[in-house]
Write a protein that binds this DNA or RNA. Sequence first.
DNA 1: AACTAAAGTGAGTAATCACTCATTTTTTAT
DNA 2: ATAAAAAATGAGTGATTACTCACTTTAGTT
Lengths: 220, 220
Amino acid sequence: MGKQEDINELFKSSESDVYGEGLTPKQKRILEAAIQMFSEKGYSSSSTSEIAKRAEVAEGTIFRHYKTKKELLLAIVTPVMSNLLAPFIIRDLDKVLKKNYKSYEDFLIAIVKNRQEFIEKHISIVKILIQEIPFHDELRSQFIDRIGKEVYTRLEAIVSHFQAKGELVEMPTQTAIRLTASSIGGFLFARYILLPEHDWNDEEELKHTIHFIMNGMKAR
Amino acid sequence: MGKQEDINELFKSSESDVYGEGLTPKQKRILEAAIQMFSEKGYSSSSTSEIAKRAEVAEGTIFRHYKTKKELLLAIVTPVMSNLLAPFIIRDLDKVLKKNYKSYEDFLIAIVKNRQEFIEKHISIVKILIQEIPFHDELRSQFIDRIGKEVYTRLEAIVSHFQAKGELVEMPTQTAIRLTASSIGGFLFARYILLPEHDWNDEEELKHTIHFIMNGMKAR
DNA sequence: AACTAAAGTGAGTAATCACTCATTTTTTAT
DNA sequence: ATAAAAAATGAGTGATTACTCACTTTAGTT
């Protein structure tokens, strides 16, 4: 059904390659098994002993690589958190906007298609992230401080940019961002979490969704 | 901060008054403690022993009233699930629509204000419901079969009604419902879950949100 | 007051939990 | 080939888990 996670690509090394460059085969199996279990049963209903069993590895091996169970969770979830919203964190955003996107609509289409690919590829981990964020302070503060605020700042700039061009109606940028994000987030949520088995026409739905946003906020 | 749950009102009796009419004082304290803990730490990270401690009750008392821990969860969550979407399940919907709401906009304003009150009152339990639905088959199937489908049918009728009046642009009703629900759900999510501490101007936000929906889907 | 049913108790149960560590196996460097 | 380092093991740890049960207390009825 869903595509397999590409463990190698996502977990290569956290920041630079200061940390070890590769993963042990068994370490990979541990991550795969943990991702499976966490997304199926939730973090705290998943026992390390069953993760070990699924990975066909001794339980001790898990704790050789990850000091605690929570560290294992963070190792899984942190890289997607960083990459999920990465496209929003760009230098010289203003130049990029002027060059690449002549309308808010173009910008939205590009960003959604791009993020949809990513989500599709890492849907299990995205699920875990969404599920566990409310219960782990480290996760929440990491998300809000490091990612959320930065992304929000960029989005503010983008919306202001197109408002100044007279393309979007004047309303608090905060509200504009919320409405845009809700519409797109609502689509992705319905598409991948609520009714993933439904027979979706992605192209068509995306078109409707973005037209809806544009009409809803169009300056007239 | 948040308002207290009104245990008495919500848990009076499941269906008719066939079941016992009231709750023991200790039973009430158990429910209050469990709601608190489940919403703070999640269902499976909450132990029955700590629930008992918070309720100042012997652990055995919990199991006198609820055979299992999961039965306790269902006792908490089922009544809000029923009441949350109850206003959508109305007989003679068409008459109600024609009499009470002359536009889709009026309908939306009424329904959102009504549901916002309910969510505000029972926000902890709504959180629990959202958190636990993915992990409990009984919950999910109950929600989809008994509530979801019925509500969806009504919404379909409502959207068709206003499309026929020429008020809404022609698009698949499914898509129209999704877009409407995303916009409103996005507001409620931001308002009560993502940034509950933010200084919200509810009236203003609601106005923007509904204008956004109306413009986005207006027939022109 | 006497009887009954329901409510409440808390010590006890087996199972499971995350995690440790002494030891063995495998990989790497020389 | 040999030594050193890293990876892997699995039996064992005390703590905690959901749940039971024989028993006591409370509430309601006559």
